[in-house]
Design a protein around this nucleic acid. Structure first.
Length: 560
RNA sequence: UGGGGUGUAGCCAAGUGGCCUAAGGCACCGGAUUUUGAUUCCGGCAUUCGGAGGUUCGAAUCCUCCCACCCCAGCCA
């Protein structure tokens, strides 16, 4: 995985380098620990890139570990999707593990804590416990059950495991400090009763360990050297360390936190993405408008563009919101060199070349890439009737519009210059056809005696083309920060025009049977990729991203 | 004075006391080349590092105070 020759030395790599230099470790082990309760999004890609990338560069190992400690929220569907996404991003795990693999070991650690008088069974109800926790500014109060004897705690805990109690009747808590200014240290719950079968362990357990207890100990069991997580776990670190210090853990991994990835015009919380999917605002987790890995993949993003994007954004502890333009730049940069070019007309407008003989045609050799001859050439046909894009014609063009209009001329890309002398309209006043003449002296790029034709437009032969459906995507949300207004649900700032479906688009023949795993540049329009729904009888292309478009920019500035 | 963090251009981000009158990328603004208004190429874009003091021959980097923003009160992860 070396898209970038030199990896940026972020602060985490600096810490690892120091740990290596001091001989604290001779092998680096990391892990990527998703909870299988949703699909992975581009924020996860940052963590994946970090953890797997480090393991890779340091000749270490990275485990894919499912943090499956809450059977109520988790599902096997997500496990498979996560594995697929990590693989697609181009990373290989050293092994797959599940926190649930460690349930027996974790249970023993809990018993060890109880034995040391460092954990107790609490029998308060949930509300009382909340009241006793105190607030951010006031200390908590000790539970009346806090001083139960070791024997009683062991007995109760074993009976919790044996299923003698119902959900919520008891919990196991670490005995730390109810006065701590760090709320995480106020006797956190480490086991709760949940009579719910687990996707992997079935009904073997009815008590499940909590995240804080499970995570660090799982890291230790796996010999993780550096446990990299996001900023919100920063004040869990004292607890992470406490468990490792108070139990006979095989090693003590170092937790280091970095900031999450945020993209403007998106939401990145699993809860909200789940809501978009479940409420039908989008077409599933892999909807091409979603910031999920599967959505980006379906839309046509390449794995390397996603990796390059993450690399370009960097790893720090600073809260950040990255502009969409960064991601778009990453795909364009990646696709420019690898995408074959082709012509496609999105909104067809018929153009008849009156002085071109009916029944005749010419075949033009066209390079598949302007700068890469190794991509070869193809042949396209030019005849009397062609389709051009409606956007390339204006009846009353503004200054600087280089394209076609009444009594104007333009070059048909790879072909000759045509002059529009008549605009045909239907009864409703809609332009339905353009009557033109062509100049034979302008073939092969010829520009006779100082005649400069600035406009060049794409086209497709009316007889040598295929119909296709094209889906254009725009930002999912109208506002850069859909969560800015706390009084409004984020779904209210959804962009109603985020998906535009165009049918009966006309594509040149070469696009009728797209090469596998190939993104095409439709000249002047953008990069396109066949959608999952596409088949030879019903072609569907997704627009991944437009090309940079300085005309569109000018046009925008002109309008408001 | 609950605790934990973060503050370098519109957005990311290097920088770890002297080569910093602060890299690089995105965005933006020029201009050149171009049968994609694409690509490519050249040039511009922080005398200043949240603010104020201080230490020092010398500070974005050290100290003090202040300010702003983010996270934490699940038997979620």
């Amino acid at each position: 995985m070396s898209d970038k020759p030199e990896e940026p030395v972020n602060f985490i790599r600096q810490a690892i380098n120091a740990d290596l230099a001091s001989n604290k470790h001779d092998k680096i082990i990391t892990r990527f620990p998703p909870e299988p309760n949703g699909y992975l999004h581009i924020g996860h890609a940052k963590s994946i890139w970090l953890n797997f990338g480090i393991a890779n560069d340091y000749d270490g190992e990275c485990t894919l570990r499912f943090d499956d400690t809450n059977p109520i929220k988790e599902d096997e569907e997500f496990v498979e999707a996560i594995e697929q996404d990590v693989r697609w991003l181009g990373f290989k795990w050293s092994r797959i593990a599940h926190a649930s693999d460690y349930f027996p070991a974790l249970y023993k650690f809990a018993l060890e804590l109880i034995g040391k008088g460092l954990a107790y069974v609490d029998s308060m109800d949930i509300e009382t416990m909340r009241e006793c926790r105190g607030t951010l500014k006031e200390p908590g109060k000790n539970s009346p059950y806090r001083e139960r004897s070791v024997g009683e705690n062991v007995d109760l805990f074993e009976r919790m495991k044996a299923g003698e109690f119902s959900d919520g009747e008891h919990v196991l808590r670490a005995k730390i400090d109810m006065q701590s200014s760090n709320i995480n240290l106020r006797d956190p719950v480490i086991y709760r009763i949940r009579h719910h079968s687990h996707q992997r362990t079935g009904d073997e357990w009815c008590i499940y360990p909590m995240y804080d207890f499970t995570h660090g100990l799982s890291d230790a069991i796996e010999g993780v050297t550096h446990s990299l997580c996001t900023l919100e776990f920063e004040d869990h670190r004292p607890l992470y360390d406490w468990f490792l210090e108070n139990v006979s853990a095989p090693c003590h991994p170092r937790q280091i936190e970095f900031s999450r990835l945020n993209l403007n015009y998106f939401v990145m919380s699993k809860r909200m993405l789940t809501q978009l999917v479940e409420s039908g605002y989008v077409d599933g987790w892999d909807d091409p408008r979603m910031p999920t890995i599967s959505g980006l993949r379906r839309r046509g993003f390449t794995a390397s563009s996603v990796r390059n994007f993450i690399a370009s954004v960097g790893i720090t502890k600073k809260a950040n919101v990255i502009e969409m333009g960064m991601l778009e730049n990453a795909v364009r940069e990646d696709l420019d060199s690898k995408s074959p070019r082709a012509m496609g007309v999105l909104k067809p407008l018929k153009l008849v070349i009156e002085n071109y003989p009916e029944g005749e045609s010419e075949t033009i050799d066209v390079a598949n890439h302007p700068h890469d001859p190794s991509m070869g050439i193809r042949q396209i046909k030019l005849i009397r009737e062609v389709y051009i894009d409606r956007d390339d014609f204006m009846e009353d063009p503004p200054k600087k519009f280089f394209r076609l209009g009444p009594d104007r001329e333009v070059r048909l890309r790879y072909g000759f210059v045509v002059h529009c002398h008549e605009v045909v309209k239907d009864n409703a006043g809609e332009v339905v056809e353009l009557r033109c003449t062509y100049d034979p002296n302008t073939r092969n790029g010829n520009q006779p005696e100082g005649r400069k034709v600035k406009g060049i437009i794409h086209w497709v032969s009316a007889e040598h083309c295929i119909d296709a459906t094209i889906r254009l995507y725009d930002r999912l949300f109208r506002e850069a920060n859909p969560l800015a207004d706390k009084n409004r649900d984020f779904t209210e700032s959804l962009n109603p025009d985020s998906l535009q479906v165009l049918t009966h688009c006309k594509l040149e023949l070469s696009l009728g049977s797209p090469a596998p795993d190939t993104r095409y540049q439709f000249e002047r329009l953008g990069y396109f990729y066949p959608d999952n729904d596409s088949d030879p009888s019903n072609l569907v292309y997704n627009r991944i991203v437009t090309l940079r478009d300085s005309w569109a920019k000018l046009d925008q500035q002109r309008k408001p």
